[in-house]
């Protein structure tokens, strides 16, 4: 690597073994990650290959690989988008509350409390979703169906048990809140004190100060945090598997009994009893999830890079 041999900005010319070793270790760690990922990708490809080349009738569902996977991809994206739409403003609000609104002494404790949400295993979220959120969602779903039924998302016959895409989206949002909030919180805390004070000194209200100093500073991190959350939402398995009443095919209706399953949940649901080509099919679905994450992250990177002028270390 050319970077490893780059001299520090100091003035010393003597060889610095410490520097070399440290730089080597840092580079090595990066290379290890790439190797692992290559290993995972290779493993996925190797395992998915039989399904890619199999004739359509033999693939699970009997209509070919594409027909099997694309509704799952749709469900994955739909639930994750719902979760992200709910969680992003919430996490920014919570992080702002902790860093700029709550009294300082309470703020630490509050941050801790939100972190606790991350400590809850996903199975528990699944059970909580089924036993608490799902029944509570039924009146909301009925209302949505009555008043907003003209939208494709709200079908005419809402589920009586509440085990719907909407509920999964809400539960996923709560699951990804802690990660997103933690990133936002740390970044908002790092806003240069001087920027904030300058803004306040000019007579800005607290909200104006936040808009002028805190939010621009944290923007790329908010997106970054959202990507972390999205990664978790896309790959979430158990909670979705336990809550969702799934059905084959694409379903825009997010409050009905027929919901598109997600890739990760489908793998968890079908994998244990599968064998032979069915396993290959599921791995191929995993490969697709891999690519979805790839595309989403490319998009996010692109957004961040367009706005990278004013953030963090330059």
């Amino acid at each position: 690597m050319s970077t490893t041999s780059a001299k520090p900005r100091g003035v010393h010319d003597a060889p610095r073994y410490g520097d070399r070793i440290f730089a080597g270790a840092a580079t090595g760690a990066g290379v290890i990650i790439l190797l692992v990922l290559a290993g995972v990708a290779g493993f996925l490809l190797w395992q998915a290959l039989p399904a890619l080349t199999a004739s359509p009738e033999d693939v699970r569902g009997g209509k070919g690989l594409f027909e099997y996977i694309y509704p799952l991809a749709f469900g994955t994206i739909l639930t994750s988008v719902i979760a992200l739409v709910i969680a992003t403003p919430l996490s920014v609000g919570i992080a702002l509350f902790i860093t700029h609104y709550a009294p300082r002494r309470i703020a630490l404790a509050l941050g801790y409390v939100v972190d606790l949400l991350a400590a809850v295993p996903s199975i528990i979220y699944g059970l909580w979703g089924v036993y608490v959120v799902a029944p509570a969602s039924v009146p909301v779903a009925t209302w949505l169906s009555n008043w907003l039924g003209f939208l494709p998302f709200f079908g005419p016959s809402p589920s009586a048990s509440g085990r719907t895409t909407l509920v999964v989206g809400v539960v996923l949002a709560i699951m990804i809140l802690p990660v997103m909030t933690a990133v936002n919180r740390e970044v908002f805390l790092q806003t240069p004190r001087l920027h904030e004070e300058a803004s306040l000194a000019l007579g800005a209200t607290r909200w104006e100060m936040i808009r002028q100093a805190v939010l621009p500073f944290g923007r790329s991190a908010v997106i970054s945090g959202a990507m972390l959350g999205l990664g978790r939402a896309l790959g979430e398995t158990m909670a979705v598997a336990i809550i969702l009443s799934t059905a084959v095919g694409v379903h825009w209706d997010i409050i009905g009994t027929a919901n598109s399953s997600t890739i990760a949940a489908d793998i968890a649901l079908q994998f244990p009893e599968s064998s032979g080509l069915d396993v290959n099919t599921l791995i191929a679905a995993g490969l697709v999830l891999f690519f979805i994450t790839l595309l989403v992250n490319m998009a996010a990177r692109w957004v961040v890079s367009r706005r990278s002028e004013f953030s963090g270390a330059n």
């Binding site: 990066g30 990650i33 790439l34 692992v36 990922l37 995972v40 996925l44 990507m227 972390l228 990664g231 978790r232 896309l234 790959g235 398995t237 890739i263 990760a264 793998i267 968890a268 994998f271 791995i283 995993g286 999830l289 891999f290 979805i292 994450t293 790839l294 989403v296 992250n297 490319m298 996010a300 990177r301």
Partner: peptide, 15 residues
């Protein structure tokens, strides 16, 4: 590396 670390967050746990 940055790119692939992002991709890595999307590996389903069973995989």
């Amino acid at each position: 590396l940055t790119f692939f670390v992002d991709v890595m967050t999307g590996i389903p746990s069973i995989v």
